[in-house]
Amino acid sequence: MTDKQENLFRAWFDRYKNLIFKVVNTYAASPEDQDDLFQEILLQLWSSIPGFQRKSKETTWIYRVALNTALVWKRTESRKRKRFRRDILDIQEISHIKDNGDELFRNKQILDQVYDSIRQLPKSESSIVLLYLDDLSYEEMAAILGISKSNVGVRLNRAKKKLAQLLKGLIDDL
């Protein structure tokens, strides 16, 4: 790995760690699993750098690596890997959100509910919902998923309906 590639990895990490964390939080619930999946995604991202030829956008690449890793990641193997890994992820909630009057606190409650609901969807639909919530265009979603734009539309509508069912009471536009 060259210095250039190492710098690219550091830059990617600084720029996209929140994106990666959203993927992690979507596919893993417990802090231990999140730590394992986070490291697994970063490991795959590191390994993928030599293959990145700037034919696709950076975000497309990062989403692909993160989602592909999350889709094939197995919780049962996380314990085996744990023996060789150190905890490196430290997620800190910003203290003022604990104040009940704060809007951030309400948002956090909503997000916890949303994450719980997304985790109940089939894995393939979780990824479509995740990309939709991150406001990606159909074209970008199609490039990440490897399906046609019309197929993205069909699948997204189906996934949104399921999500609305799971979030009954919170979502009211379907």
Binding site: F13, K22, R86, I91, N107
Partner: peptide
């Protein structure tokens, strides 16, 4: 919901020592 989703990075902070992370990877 999309707006709330996209605002989530303001509610947590990921702290990682990047040198340690690189070594670990």
């Amino acid at each position: 919901l999309q707006e709330t989703w996209q605002s989530q990075q303001s509610s947590f902070k990921i702290k990682i020592d990047s040198d340690l992370l690189l070594k670990e990877i």
